[in-house]
Design a protein around this nucleic acid. Structure first.
Length: 545
RNA sequence: GUCCCUAUAGCUUAAUGGAUAGAGUACUGGCUUGCGGAGCCAGCGAUGGAGGUUCGACUCCUCCUGGGGACGCCA
C-alpha cells in the first residue's frame, strides 16, 4: 500500500537525519500518514513534524524541512513533489508514472486486488444478529445483521480466517420459551404477532396435545427459527457458517461443566440460596447470579458456557455484535472471559438503537415492531444494506420509513451502481467495435487491456480516478482494524464520483486507438474495484439498470 | 440515583487531536455538436450551552441542557 511506503520512507528519513545529527536521538513513535481532504494538500500528508517538534526543540516547519531534505535524497520513484505547509504538515504528491503503472497491477490482480495479509490467517469469529427465536427480526436487528456480514467480508479480505456465527437462545426451560409456549396455548400474549398467530392457527392440533408450555414453546421456536434462518440466508443474503443452539449446550452438559470449572476456581459463592459469580473482583460493577435458588442456571451462566465453547474452539479473535439492550452485559462477559483465562482478543460491539421517526420505539418487548422483512420489501435489499452500513454502529439511528421508501429510487446506492452499469455499457460498445474481443472472457480481456499504453493517461480526471482506485486496499485495511464499515459506502461514492467526472472529461471511445485502449483498461479497473467494494457490502453490481 | 451511548446543514448523516467540518437529500441557478442526463457544474446551509487541556478540539476533561439504553434469582 502506498501509505505504508510513505510511512517507511519517513521513518528512514528521520533515522538518517538522526545519524547525521540533524535531529536528536529519540524513539520514533507511530507515524501518521493520512489523506487530506483538499487536493492542494497533497495525496497524502503527515503531521510527524508537529508531533516531534517538542522533542527536536525546533519549530515544526524547521523540523519538516530537515525531514524533507532526507526524503528528497531517498530518490523514490513513486513520489512527485513533496511540500511543507504551515503549521508543519508534510504533503506528498504521487508521481504520474507511478499512478499510470498501477492500473496494470489492478487488472492483473482483478478480484484479488485489495486482498491483504494483515490478518495473518488468524482464526476469527464474528457472532452477530443472534435474534431470539420468538419472532421475526425487526429493523433494529438489521443493523447488526448487515454490519456483521460486511465486517466479516472485510476481515476475510484483510486476511483473517473468519467464521460467522449465529447463537440461538432456544433453551427449553428458559422463561422466554415458556412464555412463547403460553402464547401458543392461548394463556398469554407475550410474543404475539401476526406471523405467530398464523403459525399457531396452522399448528393448532399439535399444540393442543402438548403437555407443557415449555414443550409447546420449544416446538414453536423451532418453526420460527427455521423461518428466520431462511429469511437471513435467502432474503438478506447473509452468510452464516455456524448456527449454535443454547439447548445443545445443555444437552452436551457444557453449562454444568462451565459452572464446575468456576466453582473449582473458587469464583462462586452462595447467598440467599442462590449461586453468585464473583464478577466484581474481575472488573464488573457487581456480582451476578449464575444459579437461581431453584438450582436452574441463569442466561448469564449459559452465555459463559457458550463463550467458553468459543474459546475452546481456538478463536484468537472474537467479535460479538450485540444490541443496545445488552450493553450492561459487557462487563460481566469480560469479567467471565478473564476468569476463564482467555488469551485472545474479545471485542464486544454494541449496535445502538434504531428508532422510527415519529417516536415509535423499537424494542422487542415494548409493543410495536417494524419487521426487517417489511423494510427490505419496501426499499430493496441493496438500498437497505447501503442505508444501514453508511451509519456508525454506536450512534442511534433514526429511521424514516416514509423517506426510505420515497428515496429508494434516488438512493446513493444507485449512484454507485449506475457507475458500474455505465462502464459495462461502454465496454460492450468497445467490444462490438473490436470484433477480436467480442466474446472474450473478462479475465482474458483484462489481460489484453493490461498491454495498453498507460502513459497516455494524463488528464487530471484520469489521474484522480486512479488515485481513488488505489485507495481501495487502504480502505480494506483501515476497516479491518477499526471496524468502521461506514467507510465503505463513502469510498464507493467517492470512486463513483471520480468515474462520473472522468466520464464527463474523457471520452473512452475515440479514433485514437491507443488512447481508447488505455482508457478502456482504466475503466475496466474501476469496474473491478466498484464491484469489489459493493461485494464487501453485499450489494449487487448490475450490468444494466 | 448509578453506569453506558449520544447531540453536526431543513432532513438522514461522515470525520484515527490536524489544514477551508465531508457527503446524500431538499432548495436555487446552469450544462444538448460524444461512449447511459439514474449524470456533470455552481450556490445555499451545521459542530446544543459554559469552561478547561493543547501549537491545534466535532474529537480529550469538568459542569449544564436535551435524546436513548442499562442497572432482575428475564433473555
Amino acid at each position: 500500500m502506498v501509505r505504508e511506503k510513505i510511512t517507511n520512507l519517513i521513518e528512514k528519513a528521520i533515522q538518517n537525519a538522526q545519524s547525521q545529527r540533524k535531529l536528536p536521538k529519540f524513539q520514533i513513535s507511530a507515524i501518521l500518514v493520512e489523506k487530506p481532504e483538499q487536493k492542494e494538500q497533497g495525496d497524502y500528508s503527515t503531521n510527524i513534524a508537529m508531533k516531534i517538534a517538542g522533542i527536536t526543540k525546533k519549530n515544526p516547519i524547521e523540523t519538516a524541512e530537515i525531514i524533507v531534505e532526507q526524503l528528497q535524497n531517498s530518490n523514490s520513484q513513486f513520489l512527485g513533489k513533496i511540500e511543507i505547509a504551515r503549521p508543519g504538515f508534510i504533503n506528498f504528491f504521487l508521481s504520474k508514472i507511478y499512478l499510470q503503472k498501477q492500473i496494470k497491477q489492478v487488472l492483473e490482480q482483478g478480484e484479488k486486488f485489495g486482498d491483504l495479509k494483515i490478518g495473518k490467517n488468524k482464526k476469527t469469529q464474528v457472532e452477530f444478529i443472534s435474534g431470539n427465536p420468538t419472532g421475526p427480526l425487526h429493523i433494529g436487528q438489521g443493523r447488526g445483521a448487515f454490519f456483521g456480514d460486511c465486517l466479516s467480508n472485510v476481515l476475510a479480505k484483510a486476511g483473517y480466517k473468519v467464521e460467522r456465527e449465529y447463537y440461538v437462545n432456544n433453551a427449553k426451560n428458559s422463561n422466554q420459551i415458556k412464555e412463547l409456549g403460553k402464547t401458543g396455548m392461548s394463556r398469554g400474549t407475550a410474543y404475539l404477532t401476526d406471523e405467530l398467530k398464523a403459525i399457531i392457527k396452522e399448528q393448532k392440533h399439535k399444540i393442543e396435545n402438548m403437555k407443557s408450555e415449555s414443550q409447546a414453546g420449544y416446538f414453536l421456536c423451532k418453526i420460527i427459527q427455521k423461518e428466520n434462518k431462511d429469511f437471513i440466508l435467502k432474503k438478506l443474503k447473509i452468510k452464516i457458517t455456524n448456527w449454535v443452539f443454547e439447548q445443545d449446550l445443555y444437552k452436551e452438559n457444557k453449562i454444568e461443566k462451565a459452572y464446575n470449572l468456576l466453582k473449582k476456581k473458587n469464583l462462586i459463592y452462595e447467598s440467599e440460596c442462590a449461586q453468585w459469580l464473583k464478577t466484581k473482583k474481575f472488573g464488573d460493577s457487581k456480582d451476578w447470579v449464575v444459579k437461581r435458588s431453584t438450582g436452574e442456571p441463569t442466561y448469564f451462566l449459559a452465555d459463559i458456557a457458550y463463550h467458553k465453547d468459543k474459546f475452546d474452539r481456538g478463536f484468537k479473535k472474537i467479535i460479538d455484535i450485540w444490541g443496545a439492550d445488552h450493553q450492561g452485559h459487557i462487563g460481566k462477559m469480560k469479567a467471565a472471559s478473564k476468569m476463564l483465562e482467555y488469551k485472545g482478543e474479545l471485542n464486544i460491539l454494541i449496535a445502538q438503537v434504531v428508532r422510527l421517526k415519529g417516536g415509535l420505539k423499537l424494542s422487542k418487548r415494548k409493543g410495536q415492531i417494524v419487521g426487517l422483512e417489511e423494510l427490505v420489501d419496501e426499499v430493496g435489499l441493496d438500498a437497505a444494506r447501503f442505508f444501514y452500513l453508511a451509519k456508525s454502529l454506536n450512534t442511534q439511528m433514526e429511521f424514516d420509513l416514509e423517506l426510505a421508501k420515497e428515496q429508494s429510487q434516488k438512493n446513493p446506492v444507485y449512484y454507485v451502481q449506475y457507475a458500474h452499469a455505465r462502464i459495462q455499457s461502454i465496454l460492450n460498445k468497445v467490444k462490438t467495435q473490436n470484433t477480436k474481443h467480442k466474446s472474450s472472457r473478462p479475465h482474458r480481456y483484462a489481460k489484453h487491456c493490461g498491454q495498453a499504453k498507460f502513459e497516455l493517461l494524463e488528464h487530471t480526471s484520469e489521474l484522480n480516478l486512479i488515485k481513488q482506485v488505489i485507495r481501495f486496499p487502504e480502505v480494506v485495511g483501515d476497516t479491518a482494524e477499526d471496524y468502521r464499515v461506514q467507510r465503505l459506502p463513502q469510498y464507493a461514492l467517492d470512486l463513483a464520483e471520480a468515474f462520473h467526472q472522468f466520464y464527463r472529461d474523457c471520452p473512452v471511445i475515440s479514433d485514437n486507438k491507443e488512447l481508447t485502449q488505455a482508457r478502456t483498461a482504466l475503466i475496466l479497473a474501476v469496474q473491478f474495484v466498484l464491484k469489489n467494494s459493493l461485494g464487501l457490502m453485499g450489494i449487487s453490481a448490475p450490468s444494466k439498470m
